[in-house]
């Protein structure tokens, strides 16, 4: 895999000057990022860095204050509902907690996008679902309910559902969070396999350093709503930026204390 920012390759996700607020509080402060075909881009950052908000913008679940998000060439906030639905059939999402529908079996969960967006007959859909379950090593578990699965199996089932329509673009939210190291490593391998075997472009949002370094072609480091850097794994590791080094070495930043501001915070509204 070519690790340099590949200008010659097709952009799959283009984010331009993305600004967003919760109320008056700025969450993202002008993000610019392009993700290319066939690469795994890991969006990394600590709690409150804005990475989950950024993901929600990429998925079209939030509207930005300003800026544009183009997914597969289409401005996700400007296209019609019908076009958005079509676009969404070309992307897959594996949520952090799996977001499997608890009232449906694992097999039904995985078949759902096929059932809703294709005219395939029941047996073809079942075979396609089983194919994806084979890919994620969950063969034979289709009749179980999500509540009967372990944490790692839920993540796998969520991945199977995300790829059942053979998307061009896959988003994974914290794929290895809450898993033991062995299972986490297996999920990372699976993500690499999806890129290599199916040629997917994959966006992974995570705070797990090891996982990020294992799978990333490029890493985008977010901090307090800004992009600190976008570079290859080696580039991020070699960065001299203090905040990046703090993140890599799991050091907390010492907050600079402004006595007047501190006093104002303590006495506000009293």
């Amino acid at each position: 895999m070519n690790n340099a920012a590949p200008a010659s390759r097709k952009p799959m996700v283009e984010i331009e000057n993305l600004v967003t607020h919760y109320g008056d509080r700025p969450i993202l402060k002008g993000i610019n990022l392009t993700i290319y075909e066939g690469e795994i881009m890991v969006i990394m950052g600590g709690s409150g860095s804005g990475k989950s908000t950024l993901l929600n913008h990429l998925l079209g679940l939030l509207r930005p204050t300003s800026g544009t998000v183009r997914i597969l060439g289409a401005d996700i906030n400007a296209i019609s509902d019908i076009e958005l639905t079509k676009l969404r059939t070309r992307m897959g999402v594996a949520f952090q907690g799996g977001a499997l529908f608890s009232s449906m079996s694992v097999g039904e969960n995985i078949m759902l996008p096929l059932r809703e967006h294709t005219d395939l007959d029941e047996s073809t859909m079942a075979i396609m679902a089983r194919l994806k379950m084979e890919v994620v090593s969950l063969a034979g578990f289709e009749s179980l309910m999500p509540s009967e699965l372990s944490g790692g199996m839920i993540k796998r089932a969520a991945l199977a559902r995300a790829i059942v329509m053979d998307p061009k673009l896959l988003f994974c939210d914290e794929p290895s969070a809450g898993l033991d190291p062995v299972v986490s490593s297996a999920i990372d391998e699976l993500i690499l396999l999806l890129r290599d075997a199916m040629g997917m472009s994959i966006v992974v949002v995570t705070h797990e350093l090891e996982s990020a370094f294992r799978i990333a072609d490029r890493i985008c480091v977010l901090d307090k709503g800004d992009i600190l850097m976008v570079d290859t794994v080696a580039g991020v590791r070699a960065s001299a930026n203090e905040r990046i080094q703090n993140l890599l070495n799991r050091r907390t930043e010492e907050a600079t204390l402004d006595p007047d501001d501190y006093l104002r915070r303590l006495t506000k509204g009293i």
Partner: peptide
């Protein structure tokens, strides 16, 4: 049911699946 689906991101999952 809807509340539980909401906090488990199942509603978001429906949105992103184009449902």
């Amino acid at each position: 049911r809807l509340g539980t689906m909401r906090i488990n991101q199942e509603i978001d999952a429906l949105h992103v699946m184009g449902i």
